[in-house]
Amino acid sequence: MESTTTRIHLKRSTVTTLLVGFGTLSGLIGLLAGRYPLTVLGLAALGAVAVDVAAAVATLAGVRLELHGPPDAVAGLPSEWVITARGVRRPVVVSPAVVPRSPRYLLEAGGAAVIALPPFSRGLIHHVVLDLTATGPLGLYQAGRRILIPLSVPLAVGPSPVPLEMAWPRPRAMAFGLTDGAPVGDDLFRGLRPYQRGDERRRIHWGATARHRQLMVRELDGTGVVGLRVLVEPGEPGPMADHVTGVAATVTADALSRGWAVQLVTADGAADRPQTPSPTPPFKSAWPTPIWHPAAATTRVAMIGGLRMAHHQLATATQGPLVAPPWGGLTCRVTPRGVLWE
């Protein structure tokens, strides 16, 4: 998709205004009074402004930008992007069009460079808006244009996991075998170890005990699958909703690290790709990339195969009715009131 850009706008500073006024008055007075040096002084001051404007505009005229972002981002944290500038003859300044102003990066030459964009809110990012500015040699005028760069693949901004102290319920198997080829019925032998207090007596391996002359027990890997369904009810969009989804991300990550099968159930707020808007003029109020959470119409039920998958699903989780098929394993409901086990 092609990026869209505004025409080049100009912005003057207070010094420029004063210099133009001084040059105009000096030139006029010099012309009317027939004073050649004063005329030269005034006209040269105006000429300096004109040269500076021309240089600033010419700098921006041929610059083209490309932006490549990360596959996903975390809400509240800056993300690194690769920016490629072409046609840079004099230094240009690139800054994301957000409020408050984010860092301004000085691109002195063409080529690829890494810049950090300010934190996004949770959701899907379809485009990034950058302000490209340049000044003349004297810095009297600032030329700028705003470029809207659509992303070929929307960037999912997921929640940041929230550290959580939680009492996990006793796991119970809901099925056997993670895959079709997994053994069914018996546990898998993993190894032997010395007996420890509390080990089940039926785990004692008598043969090994006789050989080692101490009590030895069998270690077995269970093939029973513990399933966890995480129902996410973030509530109204806002900081609390981001916090709730962050808690859900933590629960999901912990469950995955335990080897459990996790099913994430969310009300999906991912809308279709919005129509690419026209960029507003530069030097105007810049707004953060709006991330709207429309009312959810569908329930998204997915078995989570990894953290990135959970990250993407939680990026668009919003409040709405959750409709999901029956589930035989553990179920927890993450809400603004906390993690509720069912």
Binding site: T39, L41, G47
Partner: peptide
């Protein structure tokens, strides 16, 4: 180069336009 070009252009503009004006 920026400075030299700007100085030359600026002074030339001032002198030429002023000479033309008088």
């Amino acid at each position: 180069t920026d400075l030299v070009a700007s100085l030359a252009l600026t002074l030339a503009l001032g002198l030429v336009i002023a000479s033309f004006a008088v």
